[in-house]
Nucleic acid binder design. Structure first.
Lengths: 274, 274
DNA sequence: CGTCTATTAGAATTTTTATTCCATTTTTGC
DNA sequence: GCAAAAATGGAATAAAAATTCTAATAGACG
């Protein structure tokens, strides 16, 4: 007999979970804790599988479903299956359908880039190294001025970093190599350099990073592999493996990483100032 | 009795499907065609549901599974469930776990931006309008010079468009409003303008678009809603709804759209030239 | 320290789902 | 146009899964 009406969507499910976990007896709390951390498995697993993974009896999981307001496990599972069906436009299938139709329409290309972006984001989520990111934030947060450099395909990222730093009131200088080719003299004691470069690495970017290093300034690099010339210099290396579709990359994952970095640096500085 | 060993992954499954569809009798071909287009449903559906959706009897679907080399439906479903479990790092759950831990670490932020990017890409995939995209490609493909404008947060996108156009050998001029505030005079007969702007719309961008329109030049706009000032002008409007996390947007979907547009224009021009 | 209540484990049952079988229909080869 | 082979639909069966029930256990309270 349900105490309350069943959650209508995944968000409500998690709210309910948080609200009741504390008041639950041992085994039921085990269920709650397991599902909180692995809600994504509900859609594809059976009661028996989940129960085993959570370390409880199937019947305990059933009781849990009913306490949550569902009539049983099946109803709870339906909630997750429906929500995933929505979230899943299944690009792989979609892309196959598209490319099966026409040869290289702009829509096919778009689907391809969307798919490549999605995969890149997934890779980034899996491979991101929290420690390095924290270290990069600390380095840039402590700098007097953050110099940003990125040319060619990396320029878009550098430009966005510049925009976000400015919005977050972080002193920032964008080296764009336009006219003012070598602005290395702007590098001062107490500054830090944030360099963005991907293969084939633009020499000017590498040169500026080397110069900063020679001057004893800390360098943070956003690049594609730990084998890039930027990692030879030392400093903090953040890697993003951007998947390409055709000859181009959409930079989606790089933008997400850049944004997270810039916003973190911004809030880190605010805390220090206050 | 399986004719061949079962496909080991989703890619092989689709290959096998293509290879045998033609040689199949009516009902079995119906199964093949339905599954080719809706492979993503296999993981979450029952035999009965899929059979009904494909317009065949459950037994027909069973026979189909066996012809494909599986022992039965369950084995085929297992293939898809496993492949989806891999593809699914389930950011929503991941993010919840992260934010439950610390308050606002840079890693939490990164997870948040990745999640927001993913959702934006999904939205773009769902809402993209092929006709408009084709129209935009045609317009820009026919232009003598493509003028690109985008300021503030849109500048990164404009810069990347400029880079890709250059690589694709499309004559292109980036209006960056740096020092050379008003370069409207560069607009010539036969040119086209590609304007990028999001709320709150930068006045300079709108002004340039209006000017181009007044001169009779075609305008293509990448913007956030069809209600933006850019759509009042007329021209071809491409919308991207970028989801934000905190106060910032990662521009991932916009970058994917911009890239698809630029590459399409590039190849469209090559075809015309040759 | 004993009794009453809440919780649990595991077996038993019911329901759902996959799978097979066979009579009927359709197609193929001659 | 006819016989043989292949394909199909639908019911029957088997397997798997969800759900319920009950005896046993742990915990709370006086």
């Amino acid at each position: 007999m349900p105490d309350q009406p069943a959650p209508q969507n995944v968000e409500e499910f998690h709210q309910r979970l948080r609200a009741m976990t504390d008041a639950l007896p041992k085994r039921l709390r085990q269920c709650a804790e397991y599902l909180a951390a692995h809600a994504d498995r509900i859609a594809l697993s059976t009661v028996a599988e989940l129960a085993q993974a959570a370390g409880v009896q199937p019947s305990a999981l059933m009781r849990f479903c009913q306490i949550m307001g569902f009539s049983g496990f099946s109803e709870m599972q339906r909630l997750f299956r429906e929500s995933y069906a929505q979230v899943w436009p299944d690009y792989a299938t979609r892309l196959r359908n598209l490319s099966a139709q026409g040869p290289e329409s702009s829509t096919t290309l778009l689907a391809g880039f969307i798919d490549a972006s999605r995969i890149s984001l997934e890779k980034l989520a899996k491979t991101a190294e929290p420690d390095r990111l924290e270290a990069a934030v600390a380095t840039l947060g402590a700098a007097r001025v953050v110099h940003v450099v990125g040319l060619r395909r990396a320029f878009a990222v550098a430009a966005y970093l510049d925009y976000v730093f400015d919005k977050m009131e972080v002193p920032c200088l964008l080296h764009d190599g336009l006219g003012k080719l070598d602005r290395g003299h702007a590098l001062q004691d107490g500054d830090a350099l944030l360099a963005v470069s991907f293969a084939p690495y633009t020499p000017e970017t590498i040169a500026l990073a080397e110069r900063a290093h020679a001057l004893g300034l800390p360098v943070v690099a956003i690049t594609d592999t730990t084998l890039s010339p930027l990692s030879r210099i030392g400093g903090t290396i953040l890697t993003v493996a951007e998947v390409d579709f055709g000859a181009f990359r959409s930079m989606s994952a790089t933008m997400a990483l850049a944004l997270a970095l810039a916003v973190s640096v911004g809030s880190c500085r605010r805390e220090v100032e206050s």
